[in-house]
Each structure stands twice: as C-alpha cells, then as structure tokens.
Design a binder for these strands. Structure first.
Length: 281
DNA sequence: GATAATGTTGGAAG
DNA sequence: TCTTCCAACATTAT
C-alpha cells in the first residue's frame, strides 16, 4: 500500500538494518515478483549495502561489488526484519545478515517487483528512467509542479498520479493533497491559477510529511493491519463528515480508481462538464 | 458470495 | 499514432 512516504520509510528502515552489517546470503523463491528478470542474480548479491536510493515508489539498492537491485512494493509488498529461523508469511525473497537477522520481502499479492541489475544500470531501467520529479528527493516548487502536471489533459488527480509527470503520489496521497489544497479532483490541470499551484505544492509537501510521520517506526503499518482508525482526511471517508466542514464526503471512479473528495471544500469551479460516460456493453 | 483494496502493465478499443 | 479503458496479477477484509 505503499506510496512515496511508505516507500521512504521502508528505505530508512533498510538503511538502518543494513548499517554496519553484511549481507551474507540472498535467496528468493521462484515467483512472479521477478517477472522477466533473472532471479538467480538475486542470489549473487552480497556484502555491504553501499547505497539505497528511492525514486518515486522504486527502491534502488547498490551492493558492494557493483551489484544492484531494483525493488517495487506494488500494492502489498513490505520489508520486515525477523530473526533467523522465523517463518514469515508470504515471504518472497530474503536477505540474511551477519547479525542473525533476516530481512524478508513479503508480498501476498505479488504485485511487487524485484529486478537484479548492475548498480550502475538501475537508473536506466525502463520503469525508472521515465520517472518524473520526486517531490521529496528532488524538491518541488510551484513552477516545477505546474511544468510537470499543467500540460496534462487528464483530470488533475489522474495527472498527479502519473509517475512520469510526478513520481511518488498514489491514490491515497493524491486525494489527500487535493483535499488539503481545496481543489476538485476533476479540475483541468491547465486551468489552475498560480495561486492554486502554490496551494497544491504546499499540500503535497504537507501530505508527504504527514505520511512520513504516520508511518515511521520499526514495522510497516498499513491501513488494514491493526489500524484502529482511518488516519486520512478524505480517503476512505465516503459518506462520512468532512473533517473540515462536516459536509458528506463523496466518492467516484476516476481513471479506474476510487476518488474521495469534499464537495464543499473542493468546489468544481473550473471543471469541464463531465463527459457522458458510455454505458457498458 | 460479491466487492473493493495504497500499483503497474499490456492489450483492446476508440 | 495517441489516448482511454479495463482486465490481470493473488489475497484479504468487509
């Protein structure tokens, strides 16, 4: 369920877990997380973790000896640290460290991905090289946001989730950022005023900061796991009161994903009349 | 049982 | 060719 903040927390945890330690054995099950990649090269990884870079929702591992790994958590992937001998459910790949710990890549739905590649080649992997600016790693100004997203003719929220325009926002955090900015998800990117771009860039920062605070800790905490209440401002609150004005939060489908918004705090000004949707056959 | 879920991709349809 | 839509991936939770 990882979007930028969750992946960044995963990165920080991994850096901490690897700090001062050596990878003594890497092994992975034969599952679809490798897609077309060469799984056997996963087991060639070893030694110190020299760098771990996050680009959007992707993690780029560089190990001693120039070997590397691209990782993506998909919808349900996570890295957890266990002691040697523990059986981790849905563990798909494992890093055995020299301190008795095993870092598992656990992913029940296997939407995540692993691709071993020379460390120097990671940034030019097809899926990585096309990524847009990363708001946290690269910084983001209102002008840069406008340049990246303003030319899209898709609805604003869909454009924000386009990883080639802006890397890292997913369904939850795009909705949250739009709520914070008071912008309707269906706004046309080209119609935003410079004041609205400023509001949006600040909202994106606030959303990411909130997500980082929300997720920090030893274990990845996802919404459905032991989370007593929904920590988000609008996401998942359809039918409930808006946290700001009390109006009922609404939801609709956009770009194949469910979008939540407050009709009062996020007015439709500037929205084109909704295109009549073709009925399904 | 039906439905939907924090992501990405590939192919069909327009 | 470009854009849009949708199924697929595999599992859990409501």
């Amino acid at each position: 369920m990882p979007e930028l903040p969750e992946v960044e927390i995963a990165r920080r945890n991994l850096v901490r877990w690897f700090d001062g330690r050596r990878l003594v054995r890497a092994e992975a099950d034969d599952t679809r997380i490798f897609r077309g990649a060469e799984r056997q090269r996963f087991s060639e990884l070893s030694g110190r973790l020299e760098s771990l870079v996050r680009r959007g929702k992707y993690l780029l591992f560089a190990f001693e000896g120039g070997r590397g790994l691209m990782g993506h958590l998909g919808m349900t992937g996570k890295f957890v640290r266990r002691t040697e001998g523990h059986v981790e459910p849905y563990s798909r790949a494992r890093f055995h460290l020299d301190d008795g710990h095993v870092i598992h890549f656990s992913d029940p739905r296997m939407f995540g991905r692993m691709e071993p590649a020379p460390a120097a080649a990671l940034r030019v992997l097809d899926s990585v090289k096309l990524l847009g600016r990363d708001p946290l790693a690269d910084g983001l100004t209102a002008g840069q946001l406008q340049a990246a997203v303003g030319s899209s003719r898709k609805p604003l929220k869909v454009a924000l989730m386009d990883q080639e325009r802006l890397a890292g926002l997913g369904n939850i955090h795009a909705a949250e950022a739009l709520f914070r900015a008071g912008l309707h998800p269906s706004r046309e990117p080209g119609s935003l005023t410079s004041d609205e771009w400023k509001r949006l860039v600040q909202a994106i920062r606030a959303t990411i900061d909130f997500g980082l605070k929300e997720q920090e800790g030893e274990e990845p905490v996802y919404l459905e796991e032991g989370r007593s209440e929904n920590p988000f401002l609008v996401y998942g609150r359809a039918g409930g009161p808006c946290s700001q004005c009390g109006t009922a939060v609404e939801s609709f489908t956009q770009g194949g994903r469910t979008t939540h918004f407050c009709p009062k705090c996020q007015p439709r000004s500037g929205v084109h009349a909704p295109k009549p949707r073709a009925g399904k056959r």
